[in-house]
Design a protein around this nucleic acid. Structure first.
Length: 585
RNA sequence: GGCCCCGUAGCUCAGCGGAUAGAGCACCUGAUUCCUAAUCAGGGGGUCGCAGGUUCAAGUCCUGCCGGGGUCGCCA
């Protein structure tokens, strides 16, 4: 049951009926007709802008349309009151019986409550994390990982066939540097004094085990081998080891990808990068030319030369983008173009990429590439996750990759736990910077929204445990609860809680459309607050307590409400990938 | 200098083009013989960075400034 959708459909039907009656002109565009809860609850439960939106094209006064619409809508059985307000808003208020029926619907639909079939089974590819396989994931990767994972959950919940994908940047200079670092560690294991790790290589201790594995697998045989022979072997071993670690890091956050796509696989057999470039060349979008030097900062290294360029300026980019490095190898962008070409070739018409803030400047050219490669038929949404600043009790945590003091994802998860990390990473809009305080996130107080929401769920479960001592037949999901006489739920606080529950499907739909999982987190906080509030009212007013030892009928109805509340809390937390505990200990 | 993100209460932040802009923290006042007080109720606190524009309607969209952060051919 989706209250919002139901009312919206009723309004559209009423508008069409007015057209049949000749009271409204034909050919009106209803797409901007919306239904939304008014900011001020005194205005009612739901309001519509229909009359305001249609006034101009219908060549009628807003209030004139509104009055006619109200006459039609008055017949709605759910409606308790309906009136025209302000410039032409239609404010509706629904009868308690209508809200009570929402509880019954939630109990019937259970985990399916809130599902909206936006995707209609269409396939969509969500690429996220995609960190270099040159070391463990650091805390900055956390946010993209959690964001992507929650977005995948949200899209699956709303009817999309989602492929969660990780692009492994396993070619280019960085993985060669990793291989050389591993080779040094290999020589170290065999007893050589390797001294300082040279600049440009990876000094971290995490490379040492790779050296040990190499020594075990190859003995001393690689020592006398020239670099062009050992490098591919060492590189493969090092990348494989890093990927194992990355997958473990992701698993610690409960983040799962369906596909790990290797950049190097693009050129292993058939050269897909070359094919992609040629395809664009045939479309007139790749050419040989020169770029102006970057403005505004002196770059002594700048060398003017003719190069292979993609005409991204045709798609709104500032400059055309290089596809070949001066040594003849492909740029990262050229490979990434081929990768997106590959995604399109696998039949994806909907693509989402999750980027870190440092890649924000890369966004336009990727969109340009997808537009060019799909002839505008595919859509790509790029979500940029802004920086995460790490604090401990208000003090910034200094990080330096060079000094080896950067904080890994694993350290954060081990220190504060998976649920707080996930929730806090989602308790902020993706494009706003995030301060993450390792000390505060562990405080089990109302300062911490994670525990606040989880506690609401645990509290709901606790009510059932306690109710069972008085009314053994009133178990969760029992017929006596499911068939309770819901007309007892007439306290304003109870109705408010139901209204909050009733808003869930619309909230999910909006979050999925906008690709904004944080909306779910904020919604859950509000829902939890409504529930905690109703609970506490029982402190002052004993007749509002959920368990009424002398009234099994009333208790059953309130338990039904609590069960519906718990269902929605659990569904929402599941979308965020956060546990909904039965008790807090 | 170009481009991207942010700017809303003292602080951290929500806010889908809609009506008198919200929450948490902090501060003040109150609630525990009672289902977990890990909670709740009440109070004060705002030129939504500035200036224009579009619109019946702008915190929200557009343009230009100001401030903070990020990024800037052959790193990924």
């Amino acid at each position: 049951m989706n209250v919002h959708a139901l009312v919206h459909a009723r309004i559209i039907a009423a508008l069409q009926a007015l057209q049949s009656d000749g009271a409204l002109p034909p050919g009106l565009d209803f797409t901007n007709v919306e239904v939304s809860p008014p900011r001020d609850a005194a205005h009612g439960d739901l309001a519509s802008n229909a009359a305001l939106v249609l006034a101009k094209t219908a060549k009628m006064k807003p209030r004139g349309i509104a009055d006619k619409l109200v006459m039609k809508l008055k017949a709605m059985p759910e409606v308790q009151s309906i009136e025209v307000a302000g410039a032409g808003f239609i404010n509706m208020r629904f009868a308690p019986g209508f809200w009570q029926s929402v509880v019954a619907a939630v109990l019937k639909e259970r985990a399916a409550y809130g599902r909206v079939d936006l995707g209609k089974g269409e396939r969509i590819n969500v690429e996220y994390v995609s960190a270099n396989p040159t070391g463990p994931m650091h805390v900055g990767h956390c946010r993209g990982a959690v964001f992507g994972d929650a977005l995948v959950n949200l899209l699956r919940f709303t009817g999309y066939d989602v492929t969660a994908e990780y692009y492994i940047n396993d070619s280019g200079a960085q993985v060669d540097a990793l291989a050389r670092s591993a080779y040094l560690r290999y020589r170290e294991v065999l007893g050589e004094d390797i001294g300082e790790i040279p600049p440009g290589l990876y000094p971290g201790d995490y490379v040492k085990p790779v050296g040990a594995v190499l020594a075990k697998d190859y003995g001393r045989t690689l020592l006398d081998t020239p670099e062009d022979r050992w490098l591919p072997l060492v590189r493969d071993a090092a990348i494989a080891a890093m990927l194992v670690q990355i997958k473990e890091d992701l698993a610690s956050l409960n983040v799962k990808h369906d596909v790990f796509f290797s950049e190097r696989s693009l050129t292993l057999g058939h050269d897909e990068i070359k094919a992609t470039i040629e395809e664009l060349r045939n479309k007139g979008l790749v050419y040989e030319g020169r770029l102006p030097p970057p403005k505004g900062h002196d770059d002594g290294e700048w060398e003017d030369r003719e190069q292979t360029l993609f005409k991204s300026t045709d798609f709104g980019d500032d400059v055309d983008r290089a596809l070949m490095k001066s040594d003849g190898s492909y740029t990262y962008f050229a490979a990434d173009m081929a990768y997106h070409h590959n995604k399109l070739g696998r039949g994806f018409l909907h693509l989402i990429n999750v980027f870190g803030a440092d890649h924000a400047g890369y966004l336009t050219r990727v969109k340009a590439a997808v537009a060019a490669l799909s002839d505008g038929k595919a859509d790509l949404d790029i979500k940029v996750c802004q920086l995460v600043k790490l604090f401990r009790a208000g003090e910034p945590v200094r990080m330096s990759k060079r000094a080896g003091t950067f904080v890994t994802l694993r350290e954060v998860v081990d220190e504060v736990g998976r649920d707080p990390v996930r929730f806090m990473m989602l308790y902020r809009k993706n494009d706003a910077a995030l301060d993450f305080d390792l000390a505060k996130v562990l405080e089990q107080s109302k300062d911490n929204p994670v525990f606040y929401v989880q506690y609401a769920h645990a509290r709901a479960k606790s009510v059932f445990r306690n109710a069972g001592e008085v009314f053994p037949h009133l178990k969760e999901g029992s017929p006596d609860v499911l068939n309770a006489d819901l007309s007892c739920l007439d306290d304003p606080g109870e109705i408010d809680l139901i209204k909050r529950i009733a808003a869930f499907p619309e909230l999910v739909e909006g979050a999925a459309r906008a690709h904004e999982p944080h909306r779910v987190a904020f919604y859950l906080y509000d829902l939890a607050a409504a529930f905690h509030g109703q609970w506490a009212r029982g402190n002052d007013l004993p007749h509002l307590r959920f368990i009424q030892p002398n009234d099994g009928t009333l208790t059953a109805a309130r338990l039904a409400l609590i069960e519906a509340n718990a269902h929605v809390l659990a569904s929402g937390l599941a979308l965020l990938g956060v546990l909904a505990p039965d008790e807090m200990r």
